[in-house]
Design a protein around this nucleic acid. Structure first.
Lengths: 210, 210
DNA sequence: TAGATTGTTAATCGATTAACAATC
DNA sequence: TAGATTGTTAATCGATTAACAATC
């Protein structure tokens, strides 16, 4: 059952719905119609209804959607009701910034281990978590039920590290290395290519055709 | 002239072409066909040709594309042949990480100023750049020909800071705050919503329908 | 019940892929 | 010239929007 795949375009929009619903909830608003949400979020009401109905009928005709309920349901769809165990590979500036960012933890994404090949920082702590040598990574992942590896290492090492982690049964990568990871189908990769993003901005800033 | 707008889907792929062409160039490879590039990049050859032809005929029948030339041309399309002056607003962990990341500078994105409302870090330096108080931001932007503002502040402050910067003539925002910025049409926003990205990964990790 | 608004089907739009004539 | 490969048009596919019957 549940044979139709839901498109990544839809999935990409869910966190945004989740965010706006959270804000409505925090304001104490109880119900919202697709049209009201459409006005706030600047997407069509049609798209909102279409998107939500991929996952079930969360609304009620003549009423709209219950904010609290829809918020909770989207949270569940996104897997935010479960804890995720993460490791971070690469304790440079970006790795440290991510570990220090509290909001991930609030959503159930818990950093369990930090790994780095630089001996000078091994043994130091970042937000109470010890930086470990790379040699310990594989056993750590196996023994601590790690779901997600965050790669904040230079691209040269990333492919090989990813291979190791695949062999240890990792489920997904949050990849900040500037390289495309090729992993088996059942393993997920979400890449954040910061320089690609900046280049896109650079393009859009140029005045085209006037 | 140049009346047709080029879709953001195409623009998003340009940095990736640029990256692969750079790698081919570094390997000393002189020419590449759309089919070869297709095999390496795992996109269709048709898409590559279609994408490139939005900007002009860079290839040659029977030969393919000259790697060096195409690399340079895509760089120009992305505006990488020009320097961009950036400021960063918010000198927290993420802000520091971005300032410290050398590769942006290599591509012509130069951090000129850092601003933060926290008096304790004002006056300190990050990679040789002094952290300034927010009050100095507007005049700094006006006097230093700043194109891009990188927002690494909490979402509560972001909207108001963005408004100020729009009034100072900023061209674009690289927005890491967890909020959607609404700015006039001629101003560009490229958002990096890290938690959205992580939630998407979380969804994809769940085993759906088996 | 009447009004409101969903869930869902149908229509449109845009993006991707295929095909092939042009041409190096 | 013959072979290769582009540039570009046509066909397909998928995603978005519109419309409306179902129903609370």
């Amino acid at each position: 059952m549940e044979s139709r795949e839901i498109s990544q375009a839809v999935i990409s929009r869910l966190p945004r719905y989740f965010r706006y619903l959270g804000e409505l909830r925090d304001k104490g608003i109880e119900r919202v119609s697709s049209q009201e949400l459409s006005d706030i979020m600047r997407v069509t009401a049609s798209q909102i209804r279409q998107d939500l109905n991929n996952f079930g009928g969360f609304g009620q005709q003549g009423y709209g959607y219950n904010v609290e309920y829809l918020y909770e349901e989207i949270g569940k769809i996104l897997g935010l009701n479960k804890e995720h165990n993460l490791i971070i590979v690469g304790a440079g500036h970006l790795g440290q910034a991510l570990v220090n960012y509290m909001n991930f933890e609030r959503r159930g994404f818990i950093f369990r281990g930090i790994f780095d090949s630089d001996e000078k920082i091994q043994g130091t702590q970042i937000r109470g978590i010890t930086v470990r040598p790379m040699q310990e990574m594989e056993s750590f992942v196996r023994e601590n039920d790690i779901d997600i590896a965050v790669l904040t290492i230079p691209k040269t090492g990333a492919v090989q590290v990813a291979e190791q982690l695949v062999a240890c049964g990792i489920k997904g990568f949050w990849n900040f290395a500037h390289v495309d990871l090729h992993v088996p189908d059942h393993i997920q990769v979400e890449s954040v290519h910061l320089s690609d993003s900046l280049m896109k901005l650079s393009y859009n800033i140029l005045s085209h055709g006037e």
